[in-house]
Amino acid sequence: MGIAFYLVSVLTVAGGLAAVLLKNTVHCALAVTTAFAGLALLFLQLDAQFAGFAQILVYIGAVAILVVFAILLTRGSETPKGGVFSKTWLAGLAVAAAIFAVLGWAVLQVAGSLPQQNAAPAVTVNQIGEALMGRYVLPLEIIALLLTAALIGAVIVAMHEKEGD
């Protein structure tokens, strides 16, 4: 593994940690955008160019902007009086640490038998498009329907009700 992997991993993990730990919600949104960018770089390192650029477009281009809009619309950047962490933060931290311990232990147990470096798969966007239109056309249609329903649903849920109250 090259130095690039370690650099990008540190950037991604630091972004994730900052997103979870910072007090100001807008700073958290910026930190999580850094983490998304780091993950996109990891995808690119894994020779998954299409997934990497899709990650940049969807997460940095859309989800991060949605998060910032939601923060500004809810005035969520103000720090609440009782602190930013919930009352049961210790239990949550313990659960997360336990999950990481189990996952890390499982990975390290089988680390010796995992496949070593192999040739980079030569996958073109052309092949991905043909796979999407051929073998994966039914999931693609379902995703299209899901996205349409989700976006209409999101607008209806967030829409301001004029009459009533």
């Binding site: 991993s9 994730g16 997103a19 979870v20 962490f85 919930s86 933060w89 931290l93 997360a96 640490a97």
Partner: peptide, 24 residues
Amino acid sequence: YLLVAALIFAIGLAGALTRRNAIL
């Protein structure tokens, strides 16, 4: 890569379980 993914998963889980703001 699996270890980095496990670490990010744990960080996300910790954030989802400990933060008070719904957006976070």
